[in-house]
């Protein structure tokens, strides 16, 4: 029963992953990826990691991918142009991928551990305990990382109007300007 369920989830994930790569439309890729994240969340639930599953959906599906979709829509990327790829290196990439998979497979296929008795560990209490005691420093460091990312993206994404520097915190204006630009792009397309 569980194995059947797993196989369903796994095939869905693989299909979604293939779709991410195979789709020519970026937005379709993005939605395939969201689907994949959903499948993984389910997989996490089968692994008793409820908190991680919820966070997976909230952070990945709910926040990161929304950002992706937002940018795709903002830049109005309709379709990837089809063009013969002349980069010689890419010939190797698929065999290399196969090789990588082969290696991982051979490395892991016989990986077995003795079953360890004990309660499931994915509770929010356990994770909270871990994050705020033993791994407090990494946790705090990630908060600094996030802060840096915020500052960095604001600096990168904002546009200076003819040399005079606009208020950094007005990032909604950036969005507005970008949208105006996007409609301009659309007009030129038409």
């Amino acid at each position: 029963m569980e194995k059947v369920f797993f196989i369903i989830i796994a095939s869905l994930s693989v299909a979604a992953a293939l779709s991410v790569v195979a789709q020519r439309n970026t937005l379709y890729s993005a939605f395939s990826l969201i689907g994949l994240f959903g499948c993984l969340a389910v997989a996490y639930i089968t692994l008793q990691a409820h908190l991680i599953a919820a966070i997976q959906v909230i952070v990945y599906a709910g926040a990161i991918m929304v950002l992706f979709v937002f940018v795709i829509m903002l830049l109005n990327i309709r379709e990837e142009e089809l063009r013969v790829d002349r980069n010689r290196l890419l010939i190797f990439s698929v065999p290399l991928g196969g090789l990588l998979f082969g290696l991982i497979y051979f490395g892991l296929k016989n990986f077995k551990i003795d079953e360890i008795k004990g309660a499931p560990v994915g509770t929010s209490e356990a994770i909270g305990q871990g994050l705020f005691s033993k791994y407090l420093l990494p946790f705090e460091v990630t908060s600094i990382l996030i802060l840096l990312a915020i500052v960095g993206s604001v600096v990168l994404a904002r546009r200076e109007k003819d040399g005079d520097i606009e208020d950094i915190e007005d990032d909604e204006q950036v969005v507005k300007v970008s949208m105006a630009e996007k409609s301009k792009v659309e007009e030129t397309k038409e």
């Binding site: 797993f6 293939l18 994949l36 997989a43 196969g98 990588l100 990986f111 077995k112």
Partner: peptide
């Protein structure tokens, strides 16, 4: 466990090739 690991390997490879 190995099923999860192999699923993970497949996904990783697809991502890398992508």
């Amino acid at each position: 466990l190995s099923w999860y690991l192999i699923l993970s390997a497949i996904l990783f490879t697809i991502g890398a090739v992508g």
